[in-house]
Amino acid sequence: MIVDWLIQAGLVALYLFLAVVIGLLFMGIARKVTARVQNRVGPPVYQNFLDVGKLLAKKTNIKHNWIFDFAPLFALAGVLLALAYLPMGGYKMLSGEGDLILLLYIMAIPALGFALGAGASANPNAGVGVMRALMLMLSYEMPFLLVLLALMIFYNTASLSTLLEKQMSFAWGIVALPISALAADLALQGMMMEKPFDIPIAPHEIASGPLVEFGGKYLGMLMLYSAGSIVLETTLFVDLFLGGGVVLNPAHYGIIAYVVNYLVWFVFIFIVWMIAVLINAVFPRFRIEQAFKFYWKWPTVIAILGLIQAYIMSVFMGVVP
């Protein structure tokens, strides 16, 4: 019993560690890809590991007061916690212990911690940046929540692990609910704060917004947080619509299935991330109210259409996955 439990905990720790590593790698790849789009060579793909290492090894680190410390602690702990509740490559992690709604709210913990730390610095740029981030959240959550609702209604579950099983036995979300998948991908662009929605950290406008006063280890931990959140957000999409990358049933194939699924999951999140990065490379950014209007217009309409589809299929046609 206790041994099983320890093995589980160890596995979760390993997966979380790998997630952060993958996140940093993805950031490096994004820089490289963007550089190629811009006719440049770009930094080596492992550049972000060096950056994090350097930031954590800085000699002085300044803070304004004790509330400042909330930011890195809550951000990193929160994002790791959210990752732990997310199945990765078919491995359930803790997703049997809490469902989508819990995950949704856990995802707010790092954001809140970040916002607290940013607000503690008394820099108006940070205040404006957090305002923009919160407004952006209100914007993209509208379509995203409708998408989640469509999924939960259609698959009749709020549990991610059950959702994965049902997708494996019935059909992937992107096949069953393609309209919702489109809305979710649009929402994902805002969730990842890639252009045209990188409004909260717009350097030309508010000098990197909430990050403005963070440096040294604070920034390093926030970088780890953003690495984790890249994996978190892409995995969320993959888990919801691409069956979490589960192609082989672990019940039949055992350890091989885990390895294969992990690789497939990796490829899937890479594709989702690349789509976001390429859009990021060729778009300017919106103003915040334009982003808000955009999200409450088109993606919301698409998400509502997806919801109607899910509703009709589940309630009137009686399709039960």
Binding site: P43, S208, F214
Partner: peptide, 13 residues
């Protein structure tokens, strides 16, 4: 950026 040098917005970073 080949050498990892990128412009940063604020002196803290």
């Amino acid at each position: 950026e080949r050498f990892g040098i990128i412009p940063m917005a604020t002196p803290r970073q």
